[in-house]
């Protein structure tokens, strides 16, 4: 314990290392808290910014116009998160299943898929509107 004591004393006077996201004290209901934030009743401690926006792998962005329906992304997706829509010849991506490997981005011949910076994707409903990209 002795060698640690100096470090502990020092830490009493330094700022906490962790980022207290979304608030200093954990809210009982996060959904309600976010509504309060939108209404202007509470403030949000913003998350730590991503290290490099270019390399970061967040939620997939899909360019519908560019997509030619070649099914290449479906062939390489390890978690079978991509579904093919036969009648339109376009794809539908279920973010709830996506493992963010970005292999579809590499395989796409027309560059229609990209990884964005968005990472707050936890939800109790796996097929919520913002978790299905089409």
């Amino acid at each position: 314990m002795l060698p640690m004591l100096g470090q502990l004393l020092k830490q009493m006077f330094t700022k906490p290392f962790t980022n207290l996201f979304p608030a200093k004290y954990a809210p009982k209901n996060v959904g309600k808290y976010l509504q309060d934030v939108q209404a202007g009743k509470a403030t949000l401690i913003s998350p730590v910014p991503v290290a490099d926006p270019e390399t970061f792998r967040g939620k997939i962005v899909y360019d519908r116009e560019k997509c030619t329906g070649c099914k290449m992304c479906i062939k390489v997706c390890p978690s079978k998160a991509i579904e093919f829509k036969e009648e339109e010849k376009k794809i539908r991506i279920y973010i709830g299943r996506c493992i963010f490997c970005s292999q579809c981005n590499d395989a796409c011949p027309v560059d229609a898929l990209h990884m964005s910076e968005e990472f707050l994707l936890a939800d109790t409903n796996k097929v919520a509107d913002y978790l299905v990209v089409e």
Partner: peptide
């Protein structure tokens, strides 16, 4: 955390390297 930040910087995510 320092090495985790570097992993995020280089790979785009903290844990999976892919």
């Amino acid at each position: 955390e320092k090495v985790m930040d570097i992993l995020e910087l280089v790979n785009g995510q903290r844990v999976p390297k892919d």
